Amino acid sequence: MSEKKIKNIFMDGAISPAFIADSIAQHSTKTAIGGHSIFMGQVRRDEINGKFVAAIDYTTYQEVALAKMHEIREAIFEKYPLSCMHVHHSLGKIKAGEICLFVFTSSAHRKPAIDACNELVERIKAELPIWGKEIFEDESHQWKENI
């Protein structure tokens, strides 16, 4: 692993619109950036077997997940000419309609930012040990499948 510091991507609770807006606003002084790509994952109120999802309770093995995220981060920076990359993932109970994943990539041009963002989201979903327990309106629950 490189000598770069492992960044903590995890946040307790939902990712607020104010946090997202502030993250975007902080880039207005970075005038070499020409394109940003943003992905926001939101908890859906899915209907499953006649019951509606009220929330998802996210959990992880942080040490393992952060080490893997560091590897993914380094690989994405090697592959794409990015100016910066930000990843934030919620832990705990996130209600339907709230944001649980915020991925933000920036580059001099739009295509690398978009391609990096897309690959980053796919790798996070496929490779990070993060689990979600769907909590239904009647308080019953089941483990969520990543799709």
Rank of each mutant, 00 (worst) to 15 (best):
E78Q: 14
E78V: 00
T60S: 15
M40F: 05
K7P: 04
R110C: 07
T60W: 05
I6E: 09
I48W: 07
L101F: 12
S2Q: 02
S106L: 02
K125F: 05
G35A: 12
Y80A: 04
T60Y: 04
I114K: 09
Q142F: 10
K5V: 13
K125T: 12
L120R: 07
E134V: 03
E3W: 05
F102W: 10
E137W: 00
M85E: 06
A32D: 14
E127I: 11
I6H: 04
H109I: 07
N49P: 01
A54L: 00
I48F: 11
I147P: 00
M40N: 12
E134G: 01
E47F: 03
I114F: 15
K133S: 03
G132Q: 06
D12W: 04
S23H: 05
E71W: 04
I48G: 10
L128G: 12
D115P: 02
Q42S: 09
T29F: 12
E127D: 15
T29A: 14
A55T: 04
G132K: 15
A108R: 14
F39W: 14
I124T: 05
L101S: 08
I33V: 15
E78K: 14
S106Y: 00
Y58H: 09
R73Y: 15
P112A: 07
H141D: 02
N49F: 05
E47K: 10
F77M: 15
L91F: 06
S2G: 04
V103F: 07
P81Q: 10
I147R: 11
N8P: 03
H27C: 03
A108I: 02
S90E: 09
I20H: 01
D46T: 01
F102Q: 11
C117S: 08
H36I: 12
I124Y: 05
P129W: 02
H86R: 13
S106Q: 07
T31E: 14
E127G: 08
A126H: 09
I135C: 01
F77C: 03
G34T: 05
I114A: 13
I147H: 12
H27M: 08
Q142G: 04
A65I: 13
Y58L: 09
I9V: 12
G13Q: 04
I94L: 03
H70P: 04
F19W: 12
D12T: 13
Y80I: 02
I6M: 06
G132L: 07
S2L: 06
H88F: 08
V103K: 07
R73A: 14
M85L: 15
E74I: 04
I135V: 15
L128C: 09
S83G: 06
H141P: 00
A32R: 11
G92S: 05
D138T: 01
Y80N: 10
L82Q: 13
A126E: 12
